[in-house]
Amino acid sequence: MQKAKYQEIAGALENGIRNGEYRGRLPSVRLLGELFGVNPRTVLRALQQLTAGGLIVPNGNRGFLIPEEGSRRPVSGNIVIFHPGPVSDNPGQLDRLITEAGMRPISISTPAADLCGVRSFWETLSADGVIFMNSSLDRESAYQLKLSGIPFVAANRMPREWGVNCVEFDHESALRLFLKALIRRGRRRIALLNPRYPLHYFREIIFSAYFEVMNAYAIFDPELFVYPDESQPYEAALAAGVERLLALPRPPDAIYSSVPEPELRRILAEHRVTLPKAVECGFSRIFEEPAPDGGEPGLVYRYDRLRESLWRLLQLVIADPVRTPETRLIPVPVIGPDGELLTAATNSQPRN
């Protein structure tokens, strides 16, 4: 089967990069278009493919840079665990895994998210690898890390075109399964309550899964997808969103909340909002041990599995920095509305 033109261009540029014909950066999109006799859009598709493969890094309006493969950083024995805020994500497990491998875990916590996008910060950091927790890695930070030569992995889904190694829960499959279980029980007005996600595109991922199921059953209503108003303080916006749901002419008969139950009920109580008992609820539930065989309805998140998978993937990236980037999805067990276990946790499967 004949390759598309952009794929041919990507292959030619990849060979040139690996053979040392291009060093430091690629020619401009305009010059590459002239070289290959194609329009800029075709060149950009080829460059996006190379970016996804980790071979080049966009540099704003100044073109595409080539990370230096041969300039391996000195081995320090340090592994950085980066948190966007206070270290509250049970770092003990990662500390233990890193220590058992004969390396030193170092936790960095800062609310200054823009620090990650400063290349000089990473170039002066003595580390053999970085693990980004809690959706703390954005595109600019990923590109600057690539240019600095530090291997890294992220605990959040990244668009494929960014070319980042990451581990994430398979939220979509679990959400679809739970929604369908509610529909089989006769629920038609199913609301989805979201927290405020650090990265906006994740909201699109969740909305897409919600829309897919609800639209398939011809019961989609955009008013039932609640995302906290970013012009308000988070907790007030969340409570206001629930109030709006309950005030609808046709209020929901079921709610799935990605906000864990203790947190949501505290926020609602502080804002004097009460969920009617007639509204069937399911929640995100966090476990640090094997998931229960049944119990309270919702999606069960095993963060111990997430951390272990992050560390295993980072070890592979350190051993082979130019390996093809991959996304590993951790299956999420689902406890249905009747308290039965609808899925069981399995080994995560890489997805390129």
Rank of each mutant, 00 (worst) to 15 (best):
L341T: 05
F211T: 07
A10T: 11
F132L: 10
I131V: 11
E140I: 15
I219W: 02
E308M: 12
N347P: 03
F169A: 06
E223H: 12
P260G: 07
I205L: 13
E14T: 15
G70V: 07
I98G: 02
I267M: 05
L50V: 05
P350R: 00
Q144Y: 12
D229L: 13
L182E: 08
F225S: 08
G102A: 02
A46P: 06
F36I: 04
V334Y: 03
P91D: 01
V300T: 10
E21V: 14
S173T: 15
W162R: 12
G16H: 04
N15R: 13
P67M: 01
E21H: 15
D229P: 15
S76R: 10
H200Y: 04
E68G: 01
N39Q: 07
P297T: 03
F36N: 00
L125V: 12
S71H: 10
D304N: 11
H171C: 05
R272F: 15
L47S: 11
F225W: 14
F169G: 02
P105Y: 01
G16V: 11
N59A: 14
R285N: 08
R157Q: 06
A254M: 04
F207A: 00
R73L: 03
R285T: 13
S135F: 06
K146N: 06
L179I: 13
T324W: 05
N194Q: 14
R18V: 14
D253I: 13
E204I: 12
F211S: 01
L55W: 06
G60T: 14
G339Y: 06
L35N: 05
R312D: 00
P325G: 08
V279E: 02
P27Y: 03
E8Q: 09
S141R: 00
P40I: 04
F178S: 08
S257C: 07
L31S: 08
L275K: 07
N352M: 01
M133H: 13
L193H: 06
T110E: 10
P321R: 03
R307V: 11
L35W: 05
S88H: 09
P276E: 05
H271C: 09
I205C: 08
L147G: 05
A216S: 06
E140K: 10
E270D: 14
D221C: 04
L47E: 01
P40H: 01
L246W: 03
M214Y: 12
G186M: 00
E34W: 11
